[in-house]
Amino acid sequence: MKPLFRLLAPLALAVLASGAHAQAVLDDVMAKKVIVIAIPTDFPPYGFVGTDMAPKGLDIDMATYIGDKLGVKTELVPVTSANRIAYLQTKKADLVISTLGKNPEREKVIDFTVAYSPFFQAIFGPKTITVKTPADLAGKSIAVTRGAIEDQELTKIAPPGTEIKRFEDNNATVSAFLAGQTQLMATGASVAGNMMARNPNFDAEYKILLKDSPNFIGVAKGEDKLRTKVNDILVAGKKSGDLDKLSQKWLGRPAGDLPQ
């Protein structure tokens, strides 16, 4: 997926640079009275499905919150971490609220609003394995989701001899770890928290922090009007305590200090 995305990204930029749609998204949204927002369905508690297969979670609540504040209907599109940026670039979604972390590579192809919720990635493993510093990772196998922030961070700190096994989505990463195919797992705190709650006999624990990376909302490159509008909503939501309430509801702690 990733090489493909790299291949497409310049093409996307070329088309966007032609300026055919620049700055028009907010007007379109207000005219149609519908905002299309890309959300995750494979990442509890940010986005997952209930028994009726309807998506729910922090990102979904955030999406409807923004729709409500804009006074338009919110249409949710389920995406994966592999195709969420493509949805934005091809205007198939107006916003991406999908546990999107900010990094320079992504900033080249899309724009970001201010942060809306906290997040951190770490390495997890059973108590029987001692991992205190990155150097302890040598000779150990670690499951990680390909192309995710934790993959990039892990690749940076892992000493030679670390066996990194990459999987296509969080679910495969967790499955591989639980099945004993890897000794450790690098993932978001929420995923690991859920995994540990569901498998108490597995006796997994937090090992090393990889990165504190709050989530941002993704906007197509150059859509400053929409970005400013969403920023206003987020800043007001932070002040009124709405963002803290959302975090409290899904993550069990307030949003805290988020980067602007």
Binding site: T41, P44, M53
Partner: peptide, 13 residues
């Protein structure tokens, strides 16, 4: 895809 989504909610792959 549905299986992936359900597994992520149930953790019973």
């Amino acid at each position: 895809k549905a299986a992936t989504m359900i597994t992520n909610a149930t953790f019973r792959p």
